[in-house]
Design a protein around this nucleic acid. Structure first.
Lengths: 204, 204
DNA sequence: TCATAAACTGAATGCTTATTCAGTTTATGA
DNA sequence: TCATAAACTGAATAAGCATTCAGTTTATGA
C-alpha cells in the first residue's frame, strides 16, 4: 500500500531542501577553509549525511542548483533595473551599476559565482555555458542595437561583450580578495567609464 | 664517507628535473581528463612516483615552479616586445598583440596560466599575488605615465589596469574553450581597440 | 674490485571524502 | 491502535591520491 504525503510533510521536506541549499551557500561562500564536504553541509543544515541523498542525487547536482539559483537571482535583479531605462547606454550603465552594487553588498554571491563556478566551468566542463552566456548575451543584444543605430563603431560584438564581462570578473574579484578600493566612488566610475569608452560611446 | 657527484650525474639529474617539469606542463595543459596525479606526471616523465620526491618537496612546489616558469617566460616575451617602442600607447599595443599571439600560438601557456593558476589564486591563496600583479603592474606603470602626460583622462589606475587584464583573461579563455573567432583579425583588433578606448586614448 | 653512499623504485600507508545501506524512527490510514 | 510505508541516521564502504619507506640498483673512489 502506498501512503500519501500530508501537507505538513510536504512543507517540512521543502523546508529541508531549502535549508540544505542555504547551508550549501553559507559553506561555499567562505572559500578559505575549503571544507565543503557533504558532511559539513549536512551538519550545517541539521541533517544526517545520508539524508542529504534523499534530497539531491549527488554533490554535483547540489552545486549546480546553488549556482543556477544565484545566477537567476542576479539576472532578475539586472533585468528589473534595466527595465527602468529606454536608452541603451542607460540600460548598460544601469546593468553595470546594479551588478557592482549587488556583488559588493552580497559578497557571497560574487564569491560563489566568480570563484567556485569558474573552477567548474574552466575545466572545459561546459555544463554552465548557457547560464554564463546569459550575461554575455545580455550585453551582446545591447551592442547589436547600438551598432545598428551607429552609436558605437564597427567591432566584433562577441569579443566586446566578452571583454565587458571580463572587466567585471577581474575587478570585482580583486575587490573581494584584496580589499575594496579606498575611493569607492572613483573606482566604480572608472570601471563603468572604461567599458562605455571601450565600446566606443561618443561623449557628447 | 661522502661521495661527490660526477658531471655526468649532475647533468642527468638536471635533465630529469627538466623532464618532470615538461611532463607536468603537458599534463596540466589538457584540463579535460583531470588526472594530474603525481603518479601520472612521474609516468610521463619516465620515473617512479617515489623518485619525484627526490626532485620536488611536494606537488604544490611543482605546480608553483611550473606556473612561475611560464609567467617569467611570458613576461620576458612582453618585455622584449615593449622595448622596441618608445611611445607608451605603442608599448601597450605591442604588449597586447604579443600577449594574444603568444597565448594563441602556445595554448598550453594560456591553459595553465588562465585555468589552473586562477584556481589556486582564487581560493584566497595569495601565494602568487606577486607574480599575478606583475601583469597588472606593467600596465599600471604605463597608465601612470600616460596620465602624467595628460594623454588619458583622470581615472583609478588600479581599476583600469585590472579591467585591462580582465578583458584578456575572459576573451582568450573563451577562444580556447569555445573555439577561436571566425574573423581572427577583426576579433583581435576589437580587443585591442576596446582597451585603448577604455583607457581613454584620444583618436587623433 | 669492493664497501658503501646515493639514487631509485613502486607497493603500502594514511587521509580525505562521496556515497551507500542496514538498522531505527516517524508517518499514514485502515 | 497497529501494520507497514516512508523518511531518516551515521557508521561503514570505497575510491582517489599525495606521500613514505624498506628494499633494490647504480655510482663513487680507495
Amino acid at each position: 500500500m502506498v501512503y500519501n504525503k500530508t501537507e505538513k510533510i510536504i512543507e517540512k521536506q521543502q523546508n529541508r531542501k531549502t535549508r540544505i541549499l542555504k547551508a550549501a551557500r553559507e559553506i561555499l561562500e567562505k572559500g578559505t577553509n575549503k571544507d565543503t564536504s557533504i558532511k559539513a553541509i549536512a551538519k550545517k543544515a541539521g541533517i544526517a549525511t545520508g539524508t542529504f541523498y534523499l534530497y539531491f542525487a549527488d554533490k554535483e547536482t547540489l552545486i549546480d542548483t546553488v549556482v543556477k539559483e544565484i545566477y537567476v537571482e542576479l539576472l532578475e535583479i539586472i533585468k528589473e533595473e534595466r527595465s527602468k531605462y529606454s536608452d541603451i547606454f542607460d540600460k548598460l550603465e544601469a546593468s553595470m551599476e546594479i551588478c557592482i552594487k549587488t556583488f559588493m553588498k552580497e559578497k557571497h554571491l560574487a564569491k560563489i559565482l566568480l570563484e567556485h563556478f569558474p573552477e567548474v566551468n574552466n575545466a572545459l566542463n561546459c555544463k554552465f555555458t548557457d547560464i554564463e552566456n546569459d550575461l554575455i548575451r545580455f550585453t551582446k543584444d545591447d551592442l547589436y542595437e547600438l551598432r545598428e543605430q551607429n552609436l558605437i563603431p564597427d567591432q566584433d560584438i562577441q569579443v566586446s561583450a566578452t571583454a565587458f564581462v571580463g572587466t567585471f570578473r577581474q575587478v570585482i574579484l580583486s575587490w573581494i580578495n584584496s580589499g575594496e578600493p579606498v575611493d569607492y566612488d572613483r573606482a566604480y566610475k572608472t570601471l563603468i567609464q572604461y567599458n562605455l569608452r571601450g565600446l566606443g560611446k561618443q561623449i557628447k
